[in-house]
């Protein structure tokens, strides 16, 4: 109803009617020229031939994708078999991002709920406390985490001095460290959209549920979660997508064994070992995966909106 009224008023009496295109032009130009066009170029590059010192030769080639999916032996003439190296890196990235998302949800949902149900000025203080870390430089946060969990870092020192452990626990350079890093990097992304959903949640639904003999648990699973689901999905995507392409956490906390997509891409553009078409191809594959997730999300949103 309110939306209808708003729509009406903009269509009839917009102050700057007719100037839309003109006002939008700078955004179109900048984002179109420096982001859309580059992504197009990247797609083209993924079909070119590699030049050994980085860069490309302008000659069509499927080598980049071939290298990603198939192994043709040392000399490239053996019958093609599936190349697992890169697919495994993708799997590992998906797994790591998934674990990080799961734990973010586990911690993020109760936190978001708790904050959204505060009253008075306390609420914005809580919310502010959750948002601050997000605005702190990601690199610095990752370094802090690395410092904290090193074998000789404060965490181990502290646990040793308390006598909880008798020798340092080895966390750094494990896949757990990467999960922890991703979780730590993107946790605020989980809290904020869920918080926004819970804010809009009408607590009368919980009252009705309780009135109709639902336990707290049944109210949570049957009423609250289905209703705030859009926020939960948004939070999961906001954690999962950047985790998937993350570079800093796997690089600084994971070490060589815990290579993820981000590092694989980065390697292709550094120094002489690089392979630009391959890097472009891996980026394209990552981008396609992200687009699939986002499309799924958009359709989900459209479905919710239709209700």
């Amino acid at each position: 109803m309110a939306a209808q009224i708003a729509k009406k008023s903009t269509s009839n009496t917009s102050t700057y009617a007719g100037l839309g295109v003109f006002l939008m032009l700078p955004s179109w130009a900048v984002i179109g020229f420096f982001l859309v066009l580059p992504v197009g170029m990247m797609l083209i590059y993924s079909f070119l031939t590699k030049e050994f010192r980085g860069g490309v030769i302008w000659e069509f080639s499927l080598n980049a994708y071939d290298q990603f999916f198939f192994d043709r032996g040392l000399f490239g003439d053996a019958p093609p078999v599936i190349e697992w190296t890169y697919i495994n890196i993708f799997w590992r990235s998906i797994w790591q991002a998934g674990v990080a998302t799961f734990f973010s949800l586990l911690i993020g949902f109760p936190t978001a709920w708790f904050i959204a149900t505060r009253t008075g000025p306390n609420k914005s203080v809580w919310l502010f406390l959750i948002t601050i870390p997000y605005w702190v430089n990601l690199l610095i946060r990752t370094i802090s985490m690395k410092f904290l969990i090193r074998d000789t870092g404060p965490l181990n020192e502290w646990l040793l001095s308390l006598g909880v452990i008798s020798e340092p626990i080895h966390i750094i350079n494990t896949s757990f460290a990467v999960q922890l890093g991703l979780f730590y990097s993107y946790l605020p992304f989980m809290v904020l959209p869920i918080y926004a959903s819970v804010e809009r949640y009408n607590f009368a639904y919980s009252e009705v549920a309780a009135d109709l003999y639902a336990s707290r648990r049944a109210t949570l699973t049957k009423i609250i979660i289905p209703i705030v689901k859009p926020g939960i999905i948004a939070g999961c995507i906001l954690v999962f997508v950047p985790s998937l392409g993350a570079f800093l956490a796997p690089d600084l906390l994971g070490g060589a064994k815990n290579f993820m997509i981000g590092s694989l891409i980065e390697e292709q553009f550094k120094g002489n070992a690089g392979n630009w078409p391959f890097g472009a191809a891996v980026s394209m594959i990552l981008l396609s995966m992200v687009l699939v997730v986002l499309t799924f999300y958009a359709r989900q949103q459209a479905k919710e909106g239709a209700r």
Partner: peptide
């Protein structure tokens, strides 16, 4: 909102290539 949706590393690669 596109810059928010494209993974940072992809934006980085695309910009470099461009």
């Amino acid at each position: 909102n596109l810059p928010l949706m494209v993974p940072e590393i992809v934006t980085a690669v695309a910009t470099l290539i461009f």
